[in-house]
Structures are given as C-alpha cells and as structure tokens.
Design a protein around this nucleic acid. Sequence first.
DNA 1: TCCCATATCT
DNA 2: AAGATATGGG
Length: 330
Amino acid sequence: MEVETHMSFRTAEKISILVVDDDAAFLPVVAGILKKCNYQVVTVKYPIDALSKLKIKGDSFDLVVTDVHKSDMNGFELQQVITQAFEIPVLSMSADDKEGTILKGLKGVSVDDQRDQGLCTASQVKRGKKPAPGKSAMKLGKQGKDNSANFVLPTKSQIIWTEALHNAFLEAIRNIGFDKAVPKKIHEHMKVPGLTRENVASHWQKYRIYLRRVTDASSSIQVPDINLASKANQSTIASGTLGKHRQFHQENFGVQCSVPSLLIHTTGYRTGSLQHLKNKGKEVDVVLDPVRNFSVFRNVSATQGSQGIGDLSASSINQGNDQPHQVYTF
DNA sequence: TCCCATATCT
DNA sequence: AAGATATGGG
C-alpha cells in the first residue's frame, strides 16, 4: 500500500498510527491490516492508555484510530480530547452502523478535522487548507470496498446543508442584506466551526440558481394589482414547477404578511417562490420569501374570488409542505 | 493575492 | 441533485 505524505519533512518515515481498541480479538486484526499497509502501528487497549502514550510521544503519531465502545471514556470523547489537545487526527471505527452512532461520531468533529482525518484532497492541501499544525496530512490509500464498512467517517468530506444549517445561512443573509451578501460575509456571520467559505460559496450559488428558477416560475403570476391575482391558470403554472425544488421549501417560514400583489411590489428583488399546496382542503398558492422569512398566500380554489389573506398559520404552511428530514444541530 | 461569480465535475 | 472544485476576471 502506497503511503503519501503531503508535507515533505516526514516523507522518508512511515506514517505512524495509534490504534485503540479493547476488543482483544479485533485489535490485532486492525493492527495487522494497517501494518500490512505499511503503516507503523502501536496498539493500546483503553483510551486512558492512548492518552498517556500520546503524552509521552505525542507528536510521533500521525493518526489515532479508535473504536467507539462505551466505557468510562468512549471513543468519541477520546476523539475530542485528542483532537483538541494533541491536534492529531482521529479516525473512529465501529461495527455499529446505526445512523445514530455514525452521526454521533461525526458531530463532535469539525469538518476541517474530518478533512484532516485522511480526507483532504491534494488540492485542498496545496491551497493551505489547514492540516493540523505540524502534522502530515495524509490520505489513506484506497482499499477495497470490503473493509470500508467498518470506518465511521465517509471517504469524502462533504458538508450537508441540513435545515438547521440552511436556516443559519438564511439568517446571515437577512442580517447582511440580500444584495450585500457575498460568500465571505455570509460565512463570517454564520460562525459555524468547520464550515468553509467555499462551502458557503457553493451553497450560495445553488441557492441563487434556485431563487432564479423559482422567480421565473412565479413571475408568470406576478401581478400589478389585486384583480389580476385571480387569473385563471395561475395555479397550474405554479404546481407544475413545484416538484423540482422541493428541497428548498423545507424551511421554516415564519411570519406571514399581507397582500400577494403587495409582496411582489415591495420586494426589491424577486425571490418569491410560488408553491401550490392544500390547506384545510383548500387549494392555495403560497408565495414564499425565504430570505425575508415571510410568506403570503392566496386562495385559488375558493370561488368567492376574494383573495383572502387567509388564516394559514406558519405551521400549517409547514404541514402542507412537510417532509421528514434529519436534523443535525450545530 | 484574495475572492467573487460562473462553469464544470463528481 | 447537491456539493466540491476549477477557472477567469476584478
């Protein structure tokens, strides 16, 4: 197995790995595999031993591999301590592939740390994407699919824009002001550890594409006055495009505000999205302005022709819109 | 040199 | 589809 170091000062040496696992049967297996891959391996049984080993010869290790068993100090806690105190990347492993366990493993670790755990790409390193100071950023070479199942961390670092994270993103944009928002500012406002400016830039691009699309769709019903708001085929247009951008509709839309036509007129930029949904048996079109966190709707199915500012509550909007999704909190 | 917007890649 | 990365320009 080829070993690759990006920082040159360790090039000649083997990469050294500390393995922590109290499973007497499994420990030698892991150690054996790693040795076969040409890593230098030291094994210890318990987290406490790992810490003392690190204290003695801390900077001679490039990586700690630990299992996540629950004892007095479990692998996750060890992971945190080591990451903070020694600035050594920690790779967690477990036979437990339940999603909850995996998430737990990822939670205490910033994205940067994940990168450091053998997840950087060459170009990220080249650009000075912080590998832990004094450590060699490394890539564990590709192995077959067979053993990958045991490793908790994904092979590739990829942030997930959960609802919580996206909301933080929107909140930042609200504070900055939509037209002054640029990746750097958004990123600064968000203050999410591990989130990079690039992450934000990428999301910002996607988000604007989404807004544009949604704006184009809703522009067909943008109307100068209340009368026009009742034009016939509007709802068709709206519902026809709905399915495509569902994911950005999973947001919490708070306050509702007044007349649809008013919304259209008063928003300086056109970010309103149109959503067709059913509420209390009535069909309504909803204009959502996620950036400003308000929504407006009008009743399209009611025959009264009055475009009531109905009694849709924010929560009922969400209900109609809802779709279960996982939430990780940052 | 940084960083933005956009294009392209995975 | 969603996020990462490459690119060109200010």
